[in-house]
Design a protein around this nucleic acid. Structure first.
Lengths: 341, 341
DNA sequence: ATGAAAGCGCTAACAT
DNA sequence: ATGTTAGCGCTTTCAT
């Protein structure tokens, strides 16, 4: 079938070549102290001459420090998750960690065994990108089974759970959502509608708080799926209603769907209708008209999640939070409410 | 620091509980024949009572069939790669494989050791999503080191390499690119410009072939980066030129960039300028105007890549190709050339 | 149909 | 500063 592949070179091969014990080789590759400079050099030479590469399975099995993270997520092709994953990957590979990914189907319910069975071994470090029911459930299972080796990102009221600060990298969008809603209100809109992604996000709370504080009863939330198309469908009735002048959307994709629906309903943007999104995906700035949205630093969140995990694993100084805080970016899909006729 | 976590249950624990040897447990979890039904049942019961889960590192180390794939790719947040990854993930997890991902920085050059060192162990199965120089290089290194355990997806003339059919899942976009170019020509455009992603893609060949066959000397290719913004910048001069009436773009994102630039240059679409992309990302259909593009089944390609890899690993019947062939989808950004004044 | 023995490549604990 | 001895949890091969 396939060409015979040569037997990989092991630590013993290197040891023999360098004239030392395999243990010394181990010390060298792990940067342990207590190795004479000359010995270290000899070993390193042997390593590169032989092209030796440590076997990670053996390392893990032997109980060394684990150098891998399993990321649980629900859709790697969504902008937010893709960027978060990217941030995790950046930080992880810089630290010499391998990243495994485990995609969970939102339509499915997983047993404890199914979730834990996706880890390479019991207790393997994990990061959960929790933005829906299924991943939130996975987070609970993992946190219960191995609290010392799991962190999560997410915004779905995770903070309300006890001790969340120890394991959560929150994308704090509640406040910006509130600010964004107030901005819309300040432009003369009598109310702001909210088109929601599946699950209840914190940004929705910000929206209703702002409304309530302005003495406005929040209108019913419009539920949408995750796709542009589902948003277009979900918003069809709303955009046809001339009373609706401002819509806040769960993310940029949904906003694009709403914009599409509004276009087909013959409403002009932002004259008849203001629309704002969340994420500031690259398309937001290049859409015509430019999408008013909230800049969310998913990549920074991913990086921070990894740093936090590593801190839990290896100790050391508390990592400082290092992601940009969310910020409203006003472009061209939002503006003053048209004076009522 | 963290709560003490209980020692995981091993195969021996299960064996003791079921009153058999650990070997019999191994047979049961591997669905080996030669186990009495009653014994099998007893063992399964013990497994679920104890919540036993096999340790993958130990399995790998002991030389069992490898049940993981490492995916090498260059940017998980691009639509094409994200979808391909998703397809691999779907197929892999259905087959009980773990997927590891290794992101390569396009700006960087990697040594053989660096690439091979990202594998969990020598000879670990890998899939390379090769769309640029760096990943193509990784592909070469991996194919040389372990030809029996590497497949690749990609379109960058990979087919010209010897024996490519055995390890390549090609995204054959040369022909559609040709068809798309002919379509544009048939609409009366005197030539078609091409805005290229980094690296030379097969679709570019299709474009030039169509032009040549029509007796037209292909205009100079406009090089662009991978981002919408870079495309907008790269196309700025071209869209300002009234002689340019049709532009084909390396992918949808670039097309959006061109559309943005055209808008700012005051050119109307498709009246003054026809623009077409590649990918048919979800936004394409919802962009206003709808983007004419080529539907590429990245997810199917990813699935097929996994199936091909599995075939190489485990033998069995040749997997049949199972992705949709690319198809031109005409929407609203393309149309007849405006009659010359 | 089941069990026993050996060993995968490494790290840890204990020598020296 | 270096070497020796035990395993980690599993699959293989060979017995029975």
């Amino acid at each position: 079938m396939s060409a015979a592949e040569p037997k990989p070179v092991s630590m013993f091969d290197v040891a023999k070549r360098a004239g030392v014990s395999h243990q010394t080789v181990s010390r060298v590759i792990n940067d342990a102290p207590m190795v004479a400079a000359a010995t270290r050099a000899k070993v390193k030479a042997a390593i590169s001459e032989l092209g030796y590469r440590p076997n990670r399975s053996a390392r893990t099995l032997a109980g060394g420090a684990v150098r891998s993270v399993t990321v649980f997520t629900f859709d790697t092709s969504l902008y937010g998750t893709a960027e978060t994953l990217r941030g995790i990957e950046d930080a992880a590979s810089a630290a010499g960690f391998t990243v495994l990914i485990s995609v969970l189907d939102p339509e499915q319910t997983y047993t404890e065994g199914e979730i834990l069975g996706r880890l390479s071994h019991d207790g393997a470090p994990a990061i959960v990108i929790a933005h829906d029911e299924t991943t939130t459930q996975a987070r609970r299972i993992l946190r219960k089974a191995q609290p010392g080796a799991v962190v999560a990102t997410g915004d779905d009221k995770l903070r309300d759970e006890p001790g969340a600060a120890d394991w959560l990298v929150p994308l704090d969008d509640r406040l910006v959502a509130k600010r964004a809603t107030r901005y819309l209100l300040s432009m003369g809109h009598r109310t702001v509608h909210y088109l929601a992604m599946p699950g209840k996000a914190r940004r929705q709370d910000g929206w209703s708080e702002a409304l309530l504080e302005a003495g406005i009863e929040p209108p019913e939330v419009i539920p949408s799926g995750w796709t542009i198309g589902s948003a277009a469908t979900a918003a069809a009735d709303l955009v046809a209603d001339p009373e609706a002048t401002a819509i806040m959307c769960g993310n940029d994709d949904l906003a694009f769907g709403v914009l599409h629906a509004a276009h087909h309903a013959g409403r002009s943007i932002p004259g008849d209708l203001s629309v704002i999104g969340f994420d500031d995906c690259p398309m937001a700035a290049y859409h015509i008209p430019g999408l008013t949205t909230v800049d969310l630093d998913f990549r920074g969140v991913g990086r921070s999640a990894f740093e936090l995990l590593r801190h839990k694993l290896e100790g050391g100084p508390e990592p400082r939070t290092s992601w940009r805080s969310p910020e409203l970016i006003v472009r061209e899909t939002s503006g003053p409410a048209r004076p009522r006729s």
